[in-house]
Design a protein around this nucleic acid. Structure first.
Lengths: 336, 336
DNA sequence: CTGAAAGCGCTTACAG
DNA sequence: CTGAAAGCGCTTACAG
């Protein structure tokens, strides 16, 4: 069962390999008659070009890797959807790499053991520091997503997390809330995401002259509604009171929503809640969720633009792009 | 910037290419001393094996494609997570292919224009019929997921959708509900998924001697909480009444939940609701969602098992495996 | 284990 | 456009 080769098509069609290659790759300067003849031969033989051979000859794979902790987290699923879509329009296929948020897997993303897997990598780290990423000098083009101080040598797209967290917190302060908690950051081994969001939260409180109370920082073991709910329930059961919560992400907010309501409190009357990411579910919780909405399409577009420039040979310093976000005020913390 | 080749490593280490190849591929029968010498040379030269060349030589890519409509749908995101995880354990990387539910994209999945992209494909169609899939005789190993009559020639894993829909409906009937609606199937161009679930719904009603009322089939334009909510709201506003809803999937159920509550009705007291998929969010809605939970891990494992057998050369008739499911009774339609 | 060589199936410069 | 050939960097059978 030897495969049909380009050469076989050329012979049957009575043309050169170059011509077949041109037809297969949709090279425009081929006469319609010639194209038809070649296509007939392709059809007759059932020829399909071998991508591995093409890649070896050209050095390009036509594939990009998208790496982050876990595609089942709604934000990442929605990010993957748009990146796969936009990458497809640019002629790339998308390889999915999940790190489960472990530092070992993240290191494996950055220090590829093998060449020729993908033309470029879009990577949202949750554990690696910018220093460590910078030290792994990488031959494959790389664009980083997400918060944290990216290394100067690497392209990076993010929203201004600290500013957004500050805005969310100020929104709650503007509602007259004074006992504001933060929900869902990791207890140990804090991710950079949580760190920057907590920082903005803290800054807003300080600006408003509200003391930061450590007991109102309700940490979570994992990024999930389950752990956030458990954490909020524990706090309420222990007699802690608060009138608003800033949540690390919408999953934490959904968990908080559930815990607060199960405790017999009303949202937003007793406790106002703001989430983060504007996952599609945020518009369908009960009550609906106010949340920080990053412009995911713009993040994806920026990342792909920069990656394509790197693939095309650009080798300047890292570009750091700030994407816009907005505060979407729904029922859980309405406009005031 | 010529790449470092395996040959260069062999020369520096003073060994044969075969030995370097063995080390690189973790072939066991290499003495520790020899391995150390080769690894030192690899380190010194910064050698990384070229995957495109390996693939051309071996004919294997080490990659699988996972194809379905949209990774941002929670069920598919959770499926992708587990399949990527399990595939990784078996030494495969995962390529993501989204069809957006269009028949053209689905055809493209099945009739690959190119060879050497992946070793196998796991595909959950939403539009193509089994007949059409069977006609595209494909050289790349294929396993189908999801409902519908799969072609005899192709491997297939699914849960028994009709039985599950019947069980869900009977659960509601057992609660004493008699005006039961179905939410979220596509209005036109019905997917096979919706078709089989509707069928089970209908069978359960007929068995219980409850007439099927067409006006209680609340269709949706797309698979989303938004459209399901709109559809339920429309029904309620038009004066239609019902005391239970079977939903095509959890997104539809979440939309229905929201619409019913916004209309001032209580769940489950006034309207009981059952969803489908047991997405992780189902345990955190308000009230929590009763739902059909397919055994996703087993589905993924079966699919990968069969795919690996095909990749290894098995070419018998299609195997059709039925995976288990359970009805998870939460607050929206509690155990009775 | 070594060493030299063929082969995987493309792309691409080359002379015509 | 053709036709013959080199090259991409591996793997793998081969003789030793």
């Amino acid at each position: 069962m030897a495969a049909v080769r380009l050469q076989d098509v050329a012979k049957l069609a009575g043309v050169s390999m170059k011509t077949v290659s041109n037809v297969v790759r949709d090279y425009p300067h081929v006469s319609p008659a010639m194209r038809a003849r070649v296509e007939a031969a392709i059809e007759e033989l059932g020829y399909r070009p071998n991508l591995s051979a093409r890649r070896l000859a050209t050095g390009r794979t036509g594939m990009l890797a998208l790496a982050f902790s876990d595609v089942s987290l709604p934000y990442f699923a929605e990010l993957a959807r748009i990146i796969a879509e936009l990458a497809g329009q640019r002629g790339y296929r998308l390889l999915l790499e999940q790190t489960n948020g472990t530092i070992e897997s993240e290191r494996a993303i950055v220090s590829t053991r093998e060449a020729g897997l993908v033309d470029g990598v879009i990577f949202q780290p949750s554990r690696m520091t910018s220093l460590e990423i910078a030290q792994h000098r990488e031959d494959v083009p790389l664009v980083l997503l997400g918060e944290g101080p990216a290394p100067l040598s690497v392209d990076h797209v993010m929203i201004d997390n600290t500013a957004a967290a500050q805005e969310a917190t100020e929104h709650l302060i503007g509602m007259g809330r004074r006992s504001i908690g933060f929900v869902g950051h990791e207890e140990y081994d804090q991710s950079t995401t949580s760190k920057y969001r907590l920082m903005g939260f803290q800054q807003a409180l300080e600006r408003a002259g509200i003391p930061v109370r450590m007991e109102l920082l309700l940490s979570s073991e994992t990024i999930s509604a389950r752990d956030a709910a458990a954490s909020v329930t524990r706090a309420l059961s222990s007699g802690l009171t608060f009138d608003a919560l800033v949540c690390r992400d919408d999953l934490a907010a959904i968990g908080a929503l559930r815990a607060v309501q199960d405790f017999g409190l009303r949202v937003p009357e007793d406790v106002a809640i703001i989430g983060w990411d504007d996952i599609s579910m945020a518009a369908f919780t009960h009550p609906t969720l106010s949340t920080i909405a990053p412009d995911t399409t713009l993040i994806a577009t920026s990342a792909l633009d920069m990656l394509e420039e790197r693939i095309a040979g650009f080798s300047g310093l890292g570009r750091h792009r700030i994407a816009p976000y907005s505060l979407v005020a729904r029922e859980s913390a309405p406009e005031h």
